[in-house]
Design a protein around this nucleic acid. Sequence first.
DNA 1: TCGCTATTTTACCATTTGGTAAAGTTACGA
DNA 2: TCGTAACTTTACCAAATGGTAAAATAGCGA
Lengths: 211, 211
Amino acid sequence: MAELNMTTKDGKPSRIQRRNRGLILEAALDVFSRHGYRGATLDQIAEQAGLSKPNILYYFDGKETIHVTLLNQLMDNWLAPMREIDPDGAPLDEILCYVHRKLEMSREFPRESRLFANEIIQGAPRIVGHLEEVLKPLVDDTAEVISGWMRAGRLAPTDPRHLIFSIWATTQHYADFEVQVEVLMPGKAEQDEARAFLDRMYRRLLTPDPE
Amino acid sequence: MAELNMTTKDGKPSRIQRRNRGLILEAALDVFSRHGYRGATLDQIAEQAGLSKPNILYYFDGKETIHVTLLNQLMDNWLAPMREIDPDGAPLDEILCYVHRKLEMSREFPRESRLFANEIIQGAPRIVGHLEEVLKPLVDDTAEVISGWMRAGRLAPTDPRHLIFSIWATTQHYADFEVQVEVLMPGKAEQDEARAFLDRMYRRLLTPDPE
DNA sequence: TCGCTATTTTACCATTTGGTAAAGTTACGA
DNA sequence: TCGTAACTTTACCAAATGGTAAAATAGCGA
């Protein structure tokens, strides 16, 4: 009887369930991404979702369950651009396309980026497992693809993992440190400039030297 | 009588005051950087400092005062490397030296980096003022110096502000996302590799093209 | 060593917060 | 339209948390 609140008797979630779980997760994303896990309260989430606190606990086992649910849902979308790097594509295009898509996600989903950043900064207590089991294999594969391109002389050689880190860092910076960017470049269309800057940077880094 | 707990009657802080304020700030840095502002508790800080909670409130007006004190102390050290960029130096060397020093600070002061990141991600409620009054002028100046170098053909042209952002992002990443880095490159001496990677990246980005 | 001030402890308190029990209300298939 | 399962609300609670009052103790200059 601990977690029957997930399906109706016949095993399928009802219309109301889908709607309210959606409302809760949307509200929770907002609150968690602004205040971090411990800084967020169920009352805030409830108010923003337009539901009562006990009602929220009818749909989710507890605060932590909501948070974990969010993180798990997030991860898939978050890693999608990396999964789409095509080992048979043109190396430089593939990498630059990845950079652009990550930057695009920073603009479209800043809350998701901050939720993730909060979790990692605080030691990733609730997703280390996921990092090891899902993220690590994916990064290992991708690094191997990039290494192959470099060995074949199709990209200038560098450490592929640090390359990936730098792409994550530079693109997510515009979401995670948004207030700072806003203070330092008030009112500017930074995203377009950022795209041009990063494009140029990775192009110069990765274009192989002529023999 | 609201904040007499700062000095003894003759205006100078006593030996005990200096020691205990130091203990408190050291403990607070640890706790705040691990859990964020709201996630940290006075009890945790007190325990780690080896003092009682009321004793902590004898030295600081409240939780927020401790946090603000930390952030203010931090900012100076944090910006020091940028202040040391020499407009009369060799442009590429100055930038690369800045990159190295930022990376070095990431390794030496990861707690400070995370404290700062936590604050910014959550909207910088306690230091926007500082950002506008101290950080912005400094960045404006530095961007102007870099622009000058670019106009003189001594650096390849790019947007100087986005260049600065990318340096912050890539160097602080190793502190702020330490767990993730550790999961993906277990046991490696990432810092040395990171140094080589970043050196190479910014060298290629900024070395002017031959005419 | 006395007396005064600085420091520390003990004993609290009010609020916030995650969570629960149980009574009510709604929706929907038969 | 009735009964049952799904959903929602009301009224709580225990623990945690930031903070205070006041008594107790330690340190130090005269």
